[in-house]
């Protein structure tokens, strides 16, 4: 498989030499300073990652990796893509920008303060994150005022929507997810905490699918029940209680439920996706998300497998 158009997230734990040997030439990373970790830990970092192992915290290590990437003619972006920010986080983002501005090929931005700040400096290598929610042509239109070098489309977009957007904006460069890597919610509108492994609930999306209980929706007309003189108190209480409807969907709540194995890897699906992306030369980067770098070796297997819609990022 040709990885030259794939962009992959890297961290301190990566073997850059191996990725370069495989043919990767586009990379992105997040950096978190040890001083920041001391005050705030890692779960709310200046980038979108929540765990130390998913980021760099050593200037020496990232400098070495930057040098290797540049020697191979690769490109590297710094993720300043904290999905929210404020006066405090912005100061940290500014520090990271200053630290790496002349070392990387661009900055990935996911919030308005960072975008406005970089734009005010005249910085012209801004990549706009999927966290801005590029679900429509109109969303792209809004951000063209900032002259981004690239726009990253969301994970949970249909192929039809994706092609509609990239065909309409042929002069704009896009990055699209090759697979979602278990992030099944709409990232631009998901505000849940991540990275607290000791809480044992896991991620919200995983918890939701494993713990959900279907109940009848509350009835907006319930005051009629309250005021109905023909009903006893017991009858009223029965009408207002939580009523399970689990039996209505028992059939689908089984082990191979697609919603439980969301965004897993199906090599055939990925290859079909690449075929579609290749029809659009302005999709310049096929995104392998940060945690997905572990799955790269899977893509090198020779075995093919049937297309499985349940394991596909897109409905192909």
């Amino acid at each position: 498989m040709n990885f030259s158009k794939c962009i992959i997230g890297i961290s301190q734990q990566n073997d850059i030499d191996e990725l370069l040997r495989l043919g990767f030439r586009q990379f992105y990373f997040g950096y978190i300073d040890k001083r920041y970790i001391e005050s705030y830990a890692t779960q709310i970092s200046p980038n979108r990652r929540y765990r130390l192992k998913e980021q760099y915290s050593s200037i020496e290590k990232i400098t070495q990796d930057i040098t290797k990437i540049q020697q191979h003619g690769g490109t590297l972006y710094l993720a300043l893509n904290a999905f929210f920010t404020n006066g405090i986080i912005l100061e940290e983002i500014k520090r990271n920008f200053t630290l790496f501005a002349d070392k990387v090929d661009g900055m990935i931005v996911a919030n308005m303060p960072t975008l406005l700040y970089l734009h005010s400096l005249g910085y012209d290598k801004i990549v706009l994150s999927n966290l801005f929610g590029f679900y429509s042509k109109a969303a792209v239109a809004f951000f063209l005022q900032f002259s981004p070098v690239k726009i990253i489309l969301p994970r949970d977009i249909t192929i039809e929507e994706l092609e509609s957007i990239v065909s309409h904006y042929k002069e704009v460069q896009f990055e699209a997810f090759l697979f979602g890597d278990n992030c099944r919610f709409s990232e631009a509108f998901c505000f849940s905490e991540h990275g607290y492994d000791s809480l044992e609930f896991g991620s919200l999306c995983g918890y939701a699918i494993n713990s959900k209980k279907s109940i009848e929706k509350a009835d907006v007309h319930f005051k009629h029940t309250l005021k109905n003189p023909k009903l006893t108190q017991e009858q009223k209480a029965a009408q207002l209680k939580t009523i399970s409807t689990n039996e209505n969907y028992q059939t689908f709540d089984k082990e191979d439920n697609p919603y439980k194995i969301f965004h897993k890897l199906n090599k055939t699906a990925i290859l079909k996706t690449i075929e579609i992306f290749q029809k659009h030369p302005n999709i310049v980067s096929y995104k392998i998300p940060s945690r997905g770098r572990e799955f790269v070796k899977f893509l090198l297997h020779d075995e093919s497998e049937p297309y499985n819609y349940k394991e596909s990022q897109y409905d192909l």
Binding site: D156, R184, S186, S192, N257, Y259
Partner: peptide
Amino acid sequence: TISHSRACDIAGIYNDKQTYFPA
């Protein structure tokens, strides 16, 4: 709102044939 998403677990529980979100 903690999260609102195209991947809707209410849509999903009734239909395992469509993709992970109603498009």
